[in-house]
Design a binder for these strands. Structure first.
Lengths: 207, 207
DNA sequence: AATTAATTAGTACCAGGTTATAATAGCTGC
DNA sequence: GCAGCTATTATAACCTGGTACTAATTAATT
């Protein structure tokens, strides 16, 4: 009973994997094009999609369009670069950001500085507990280069809140593992209820 | 000849405007739904779309999906942020960068700091005439916030080359019109023929 | 009234599917 | 060797949201 099927006995699982991968790589592919790649009938492709819960081409495009449409409407997915994993307003915060292909120089695999900066800057702004928070100045240091695939952990500490002057000093340290790769001192303007008309560039938006 | 058409005589132009607006507001709307809103036949809707060059629902969704798809895939097209309009290696450079939708906080229309930083940083790196150039440190100031649609002109000046030490100081000023909006002092490591193993994050890449 | 522009109607056709039903192929168990 | 199973393929009807084209109808203009 259930003898291991000597030679191949799971071309289906394999095909399912391939199918998922193909559609993932190119969501714009039609079933007909898939038949040519996978050498099975179009019915098989459709049964496979059914089993795998992969929607038809038009549904896929619609979903993508919806995703991108919402993200235009309510951008704040992107307003903080990196994932905030801890946040104590007006005290400290931690965010994680993995260096992917789109962040590095293709030739060297070294992350472009502004991405590392952006993570730190976003976090510095996010940690300030105010309606509006804007970076006014920063003093930064890239301690070592960060490479493709590395996970940057940024830790921000609010150093002074200076209540009256509506300014905060935030220190950010970014690590890859144990190694510090970046350090920055940020001066953040905060809305003390009313408008800030000079300086600054950022708005905090807790998501 | 061409007497002003007494009462209404341009329900078409008006309808065209409404139609454009409706589709713009909700690109997911079908022609059939539009007939209900505009109280005209579906053929009229389709003629209107034809005249206005508005593609059918499915095309619209596909375009949106494509837009969002490549923006994920090829976000890092430009290794230099902004268009370099003048470059005198080891002396100075100018770049132009227009603040678009994707660079601002949706709620306020204010550019996120790291984009302004990225332009300056890219330029500071580009202006250094060397195989490899990496930002080691920077001291920056956001003088006023930059808003959607504004064109940022960044001017970089190489202040000292300090030949032996393989370090360069670059000053960058970013203007919108006459107004200075950003100022930064960058310290850039340069490859003096051999590797730099500490510090830095950037590679120059003249496009 | 004649002409012209705008609108509506109707038909054929298309892509890229879904749903359902049935026919085959390829082993498996015994 | 054959019933019984899964997997695959085939066939046909139907759906959505259109395009393309032709023709008729309804204003509006001159």
């Amino acid at each position: 009973m259930k003898v291991v099927p000597a030679i191949e006995r799971l071309p289906k699982r394999q095909r399912h994997q391939q199918l998922s991968k193909l559609i993932d790589e190119n969501p714009f592919i039609t079933d007909r094009e898939l038949t040519r790649l996978l050498k099975v009938s179009i019915q098989t492709i459709r049964l496979d999609r059914l089993e795998l819960g992969i929607p038809e081409l038009r549904e896929r495009l619609k979903l993508m369009a919806e995703r991108s449409y919402d993200s235009v409407r309510s951008l704040p997915l992107h307003e903080v670069i990196g994932d905030i994993v801890d946040l104590q307003l007006d005290r400290s915060g931690i965010s994680m950001f993995e260096i992917a292909n789109e962040h590095v120089f293709s030739r060297t695999g070294i992350a472009r500085g502004h991405h590392v900066f952006a993570q730190a800057n976003s976090l510095a702004v996010a940690v300030i507990d105010d309606e509006i928070a804007l970076t006014a100045a920063a003093d930064i240091r890239f301690i070592r280069s960060v490479k493709l695939g590395e996970k940057c952990i940024a830790k921000a500490y609010v150093r002074s809140v200076s209540g009256e002057k509506s300014k905060a000093k935030v220190e950010v340290f970014t690590y890859v593992g144990e190694e510090m790769v970046f350090q920055g001192n940020f001066i953040i303007y905060r809305s003390a209820g009313d408008q800030v008309d000079e300086g600054g560039i950022e708005r905090a938006d807790r998501h």
